[in-house]
């Protein structure tokens, strides 16, 4: 089973929650693996005292110019819908950051002058922690194809952890990377705050998940700090509220130190328990 933990906006406590949930489940003898799919800003690993077990380079395929047979016809630049190729009269220039790896230029080139070769975009790291593994996708600076790395990280997990409960810590927002981190999941837990920002972003996230046809649950973090508009919204949309995590500066302090919160704060632990039960019931 795959569960994605997502939120419309950043800073709602998504990562804290994912890490604590994974640690809690592992402690209760569940076979669980956590994936940090926020490949632009992976942070989960900061909260896990564990050992790096492996590091795999993540690549993408891009064309490389082989000039020996090239006739400079310019077909490749014309074909590329992403403007990643510039064809001059005596040189073909390729911009790998713009390439989407569609293979069209390579396979349609009349002289086979653009063979596809792999090029590094980031890495996938495996950390072993107390009772569970953390897989982290990390995009190299200056690279733009987050979606490709997210897909590769999910593949890595699908191969290595077939029967485990897979928790995916998604990137914030509602655009392509989030969809990639969600589209294969059985359940999506949306983390929000009881504020107008939280509600606005939750609404966007719910609309997206509806189009994808996903089952949802909502977790309200920093409960008590704001109003009840988020609760009213969930009720109207018939989305279950899985847990309400109390607003507590002690949680923030714990987080600031990079420590596991549920081991220290009782009400937080109770909320994690509710989430764990919700996932269990869902299975």
């Amino acid at each position: 089973m795959r569960v994605t933990i997502a939120s419309g906006k950043g800073g709602t406590g998504k990562t804290t929650l994912s890490v604590n949930l994974a640690a809690y489940l592992a402690k209760h003898k569940k076979d669980v693996v956590l994936a940090d799919l926020d490949v632009e800003e992976p942070n989960s690993q900061l909260f896990i005292i564990g050992e790096e077990k492996s590091c795999t380079t993540a690549n993408k395929m891009v064309p490389h110019w082989d000039k020996s047979e090239c006739t400079y016809c310019g077909e490749c630049a014309d074909i590329c819908n992403f403007n990643a190729i510039v064809a001059l009269s005596d040189e073909i220039i390729i911009y790998p950051q713009l390439c989407h790896s569609c293979y069209a230029c390579s396979e349609l080139c009349p002289t086979n002058s653009l063979p596809m070769q792999s090029e590094r975009i980031g890495e996938i790291k495996l950390f072993e922690s107390k009772g569970f593994d953390l897989i982290e996708g990390r995009l190299d600076l200056g690279q733009e194809m987050a979606v490709g790395l997210i897909a590769q990280t999910i593949d890595f997990i699908d191969k290595g952890y077939e029967d485990s409960l897979k928790l995916f810590d998604a990137p914030p927002g509602t655009s392509c990377p989030v969809i990639e981190a969600t589209k294969k999941s059985d359940l999506v837990l949306l983390v929000t705050e009881p504020t107008p920002f939280g509600l606005n972003d939750l609404t966007l996230a719910v609309e997206t998940m509806k189009v994808l046809g996903k089952k949802m649950g909502v977790i309200i973090n920093r409960y008590g700090i704001g109003d009840d508009a988020v609760e009213a919204y969930c009720k109207a949309e018939h989305i279950p509220i899985v847990a309400k995590i109390k607003n507590d500066k002690a949680v923030a302090e714990c987080y600031a130190r990079g420590e596991l919160v549920y081991e220290q704060i009782e009400h937080f632990k109770a909320s994690i328990e509710q989430i764990a039960n919700f996932i269990e019931d869902y299975r």
């Binding site: 403007n83 510039v86 064809a87 001059l88 911009y95």
Partner: peptide, 15 residues
């Protein structure tokens, strides 16, 4: 209509 790389294509056209 171009997302990215408009400058590249314009430069090619110029040359």
């Amino acid at each position: 209509h171009m997302e990215h790389g408009a400058g590249l294509q314009t430069a090619q056209k110029a040359l």
